[in-house]
């Protein structure tokens, strides 16, 4: 589904990703861990198409298409979703209206019929189940005045409604208490259907305890330096990242 080969990415002329290789197959859940500044969020933003994240060399293929040539909204319509580490507040834009507009924009781009208000409400209510999220948040402006946990749950709600084929979760666990973390993990697990793929970016192993990743990768200084199974996350939890920093020094 996703093939990243020798990816080099610069932000404001500073190279952040320095030859990253990664392949994610259908239905797989990959976790990317690594210390601060290793390039984890840069990877997420690059995949989603953020401006100023310049691919200087290498390639990203998503279902055989060159992702680098696609606009952010085209990537979304193709089935890519980024749950932001810091979801943006958009004053004045109704949360439900925004989500429905996004859903219909994607459907339109794919040549599918638009979803009417009644059908949309049904979809949202279904998506809210289990997230312990107050429906009234849908009537408020996007993320405005939401707590940290509510913002993260709103991201998961969006993901559930938009039904992406590949979801990138950028430190979705940061700022969540134990109960909220569990709810968010359950929300992610409900979307695992053997076809949908996930790239989970995290610092900690605790989210992965709930998600059972197929593969765990360690990102350090812009490259994946180690890959393994869930046991790798446990080892990193015990040992930390200091040995990686020593190695790169």
């Amino acid at each position: 589904m996703l093939k990243i080969k020798n990816l080099h990415v610069s932000v404001e002329d500073q190279e952040i990703l320095k030859g990253l290789d990664l392949e994610i197959g259908p239905g797989e859940l990959h976790a990317v861990m690594g210390p601060n500044g290793s390039g984890k969020s840069t990877l997420g933003y690059t995949l989603a198409g953020r401006e100023d994240y310049e691919i200087t060399s290498g390639s990203i293929e998503f279902d055989g298409e060159d992702l680098g040539e696609m606009e952010p909204d085209e990537r979304a319509a193709a089935g890519l979703f980024l749950a932001f580490q810091y979801p943006v507040e958009i004053p004045g834009v109704n949360n439900a209206y925004f989500l429905r507009a996004a859903l219909n924009a994607q459907r339109k781009a794919r040549g599918e019929s638009e979803v009417d208000g009644v059908e949309f409400l049904k979809m949202v209510r279904e998506s809210l189940k289990g997230l312990d999220m107050d429906e009234s948040l849908l009537k408020r402006a996007v993320n405005e005045g939401f707590s940290g946990g509510e913002k993260k749950r709103n991201e998961i709600t969006q993901m559930a409604v938009l039904q992406p084929r590949l979801a990138i979760l950028d430190e979705t666990d940061s700022g969540l208490d134990i109960d909220a973390l569990k709810l968010v993990a359950e929300g992610i697990n409900r979307l695992r259907d053997g076809q949908r793929s996930f790239l989970v970016i995290t610092h900690y192993q605790r989210l992965l305890d709930y998600l059972s990743p197929d593969h765990v990768h360690v990102l350090s200084d812009g490259q994946i330096v180690e890959s393994g199974g869930p046991e790798l996350a446990h080892r990193l939890e015990e040992q930390g990242y200091a040995h990686l920093e020593r190695a790169s020094a």
Binding site: R50, E71, D73, V88, G92, V93, F98, L99, A105, L162
Partner: peptide, 29 residues
């Protein structure tokens, strides 16, 4: 805000739709 624009586009809205919605959000109040 560029971040807001990117956030909206990452959800599937075109640049023109995102700009219109951002402006509307500011102006409607």
């Amino acid at each position: 805000d560029d971040r807001s624009l990117f956030y909206m586009r990452s959800r599937g809205l075109s640049e023109a739709e995102s700009l219109a919605l951002l402006k509307y959000g500011f102006a409607a109040e």
